[in-house]
Amino acid sequence: MTEKPVQRRPGGRTARNRENVLRATADLLLSEGYEQLTFARVAAAADVAETTVYRRWPSKVHLAADALSELARVENPIPDTGTLEGDLRELLSQVVALIERPEVRRVILTVVSLAGDAEVVRAKEVFWEARFAGAATIVSRAVERGELPSDTDPYEVIEDLAAPAYFRLLVTGRPLDSRLVERSVALALNGPNIRSMPGPDRHTSASIHG
């Protein structure tokens, strides 16, 4: 009887190494901060060769950005509640819960302080491109359901939604509470693109609470 060849998952080892490296990076970032992050420490924690880390990530800035993107993807999955309002509320609630964690807040503030570094700027661009691409799914589904006009700019909707939370985090320090979530959802739902949608029932109403 001829034995069947073992089916190996394409890129299995590479995928596992990447997962281990990003997990180790996130753990180090959140527990000890960006300043203490090194390729050598990440490689040791992930049980991979240091060259494995260097080959994939050109700098610790890119490594940190990739790890934070993966953390956000896992802990902030794109919601699908069936309505635009529900999706926006759930998305922002997840974001607020994540950035309210002291260790996450510390990393964000540290990275922002490095804004003059060209590598940091590019890494942040990659991070936000990935986050916006995922969140844009919410807008695309809303267009398909007829809740939004077809020319709605997904980036503008998500910017309207998330900007107040990051303004409070980075500038004023005011609470990231449920009032902020409801107010931000209402602002996003009444943005210029959404107001252009005909019909009184294009979305359920959202009152501004603050």
Rank of each mutant, 00 (worst) to 15 (best):
M1R: 15
P5S: 13
V6A: 14
R9L: 08
G12Q: 15
T14R: 15
A15K: 11
R16P: 01
V21D: 04
L22E: 11
A24I: 02
A24V: 01
G33F: 11
Y34K: 02
A40S: 13
R41Q: 08
V42R: 13
A45H: 08
A45R: 11
A46Y: 15
D47F: 09
D47Q: 09
D47W: 06
V48I: 06
R55N: 03
K60Q: 09
H62V: 02
H62K: 07
A64W: 12
A64Q: 09
A67I: 02
A67C: 05
E70F: 03
E75N: 06
P77I: 03
P79W: 01
P79G: 07
L84H: 04
E85K: 13
R89V: 06
L92H: 04
Q94R: 09
Q94N: 13
Q94V: 00
V95H: 03
A97M: 06
L98W: 11
P102A: 05
P102F: 05
R106L: 01
V107T: 07
V111L: 05
V111N: 03
S113M: 11
S113C: 03
S113Y: 14
L114W: 12
A118R: 15
V120N: 06
V121N: 02
A123C: 08
K124I: 01
R131A: 01
A133C: 01
A133I: 01
A135F: 12
A136R: 09
T137D: 12
R141D: 01
R141V: 00
A142P: 01
A142T: 01
E144F: 05
R145H: 07
G146Y: 04
L148N: 10
L148C: 10
S150I: 02
T152K: 03
E156A: 06
V157K: 11
V157D: 04
L161C: 11
L161T: 05
P164H: 04
A165W: 08
A165S: 08
F167C: 00
L169A: 05
L170F: 12
T172G: 10
R174Y: 07
R174L: 07
R174I: 00
R183N: 09
A186V: 00
A188L: 01
L189K: 08
G191H: 04
G191F: 03
P192T: 00
N193W: 03
R195G: 00
M197K: 08
P198G: 09
R202W: 04
R202Q: 07
T204E: 15
S205T: 05
S207V: 14
I208L: 09
H209K: 03
